[in-house]
Simulated assay, not measured.
Amino acid sequence: MILLISDLHLHEERPDITGAFLAFLEQYAQQAQALYILGDFFEVWIGDDAMTPFQHSIAAALHQVATQGTQIYLMHGNRDFLIGKKFCQLAQCKLLQDPSLVSLAGEQVLLMHGDSLCTSDHSYIRLRKVLRNPLVLFVLRHLPLRTRQRLAGDLRQKSKTSTRMKAMNITDVNPEAVEQVMQQHQVRTLIHGHTHRPAVHNLTDNKRRIVLGDWENQGWFLQVTQADFALKTLSFPKSKFKSVLSEPDA
């Protein structure tokens, strides 16, 4: 069994999400061959040198799962693209490039966070190119901590305001971008997060696009076995390690 998740947006102000994630690790991830985290794992990340006790606790939880045999892979999202080697070492996880080709259930599958597919959102794509520039990344990592905190807060607020003002089709993936990247990598299945619109989209030519859900109101994960790719939900626990598994509505 292989598990995939994305868009948990973990932070101290949402202990319900944290509790659900810890329950997920205990009940499912510890029994999995591999766990893939496809971006926006944290609500914000301003650098490995600024890790909080909360973020250290999440790294420790992942480390415990990894030491029991589960391989953990982490991909950057648009909120946590500054996660670096130190966190990965503490969490015992491997950083994945976006996009990445992996073998799931005997099939080559393309994994992405998904934000680079939102090509109709021109202002965001321009900002993404700037922020992911290696020189800009170097400068960001070496800014004073308070400056990074202020910049992160400003970017989060502007992102929320901008997203509310944009049409749904602008903030979703562009079908032509999806077709192009799947053709480029010669895959039948694309899995991504970012849009917070979980679904399995059946495309032409027997292709499919699986969108992982965000963890705002419930947990979402994709469970992959040799027989099936199943998108599942996980209710937020009333206590730290209690959860209810269910299939999403059709």
Score class of each variant (00 low, 15 high):
residue 33 Q to E: 15
residue 35 L to K: 08
residue 11 H to Q: 12
residue 39 G to S: 02
residue 37 I to M: 09
residue 6 S to V: 04
residue 4 L to T: 06
residue 38 L to K: 11
residue 11 H to C: 12
residue 33 Q to P: 00
residue 26 E to R: 09
residue 35 L to A: 09
residue 9 H to Y: 07
residue 40 D to S: 09
residue 26 E to N: 13
residue 9 H to A: 05
residue 28 Y to A: 09
residue 40 D to N: 13
residue 12 E to Q: 02
residue 22 L to A: 00
residue 14 R to E: 08
residue 7 D to W: 11
residue 3 L to W: 05
residue 24 F to N: 03
residue 11 H to R: 12
residue 31 Q to I: 02
residue 17 I to A: 15
residue 25 L to D: 00
residue 13 E to I: 08
residue 21 F to L: 02
residue 13 E to G: 12
residue 27 Q to S: 14
residue 16 D to E: 12
residue 33 Q to R: 12
residue 32 A to W: 06
residue 26 E to W: 05
residue 39 G to W: 01
residue 30 Q to I: 10
residue 27 Q to Y: 13
residue 14 R to A: 12
residue 25 L to M: 01
residue 10 L to E: 07
residue 22 L to D: 00
residue 35 L to V: 11
residue 12 E to K: 03
residue 33 Q to A: 13
residue 24 F to A: 01
residue 5 I to E: 06
residue 16 D to Q: 11
residue 23 A to M: 10
residue 29 A to G: 02
residue 25 L to P: 03
residue 34 A to H: 06
residue 11 H to W: 09
residue 9 H to V: 04
residue 4 L to W: 06
residue 6 S to C: 05
residue 20 A to D: 06
residue 15 P to H: 05
residue 30 Q to W: 02
residue 31 Q to R: 14
residue 37 I to C: 10
residue 23 A to R: 05
residue 26 E to P: 04
residue 29 A to L: 03
residue 12 E to C: 01
residue 9 H to W: 03
residue 35 L to S: 12
residue 18 T to I: 08
residue 32 A to P: 03
residue 5 I to A: 09
residue 5 I to Q: 07
residue 36 Y to P: 00
residue 23 A to I: 07
residue 17 I to K: 14
residue 3 L to P: 07
residue 36 Y to R: 02
residue 27 Q to L: 12
residue 13 E to H: 14
residue 14 R to P: 07
residue 32 A to R: 09
residue 33 Q to K: 13
residue 12 E to F: 01
residue 7 D to H: 06
residue 30 Q to F: 08
residue 28 Y to C: 11
residue 33 Q to Y: 07
residue 33 Q to N: 13
residue 13 E to Q: 15
residue 32 A to D: 00
residue 4 L to N: 04
residue 13 E to Y: 10
residue 8 L to D: 06
residue 14 R to G: 04
residue 26 E to A: 13
residue 36 Y to G: 02
residue 15 P to V: 09
residue 25 L to Y: 03
residue 17 I to V: 15
residue 11 H to K: 11
residue 4 L to G: 07
residue 9 H to T: 03
residue 12 E to M: 02
residue 28 Y to E: 13
residue 19 G to M: 13
residue 19 G to V: 09
residue 20 A to G: 15
residue 40 D to I: 10
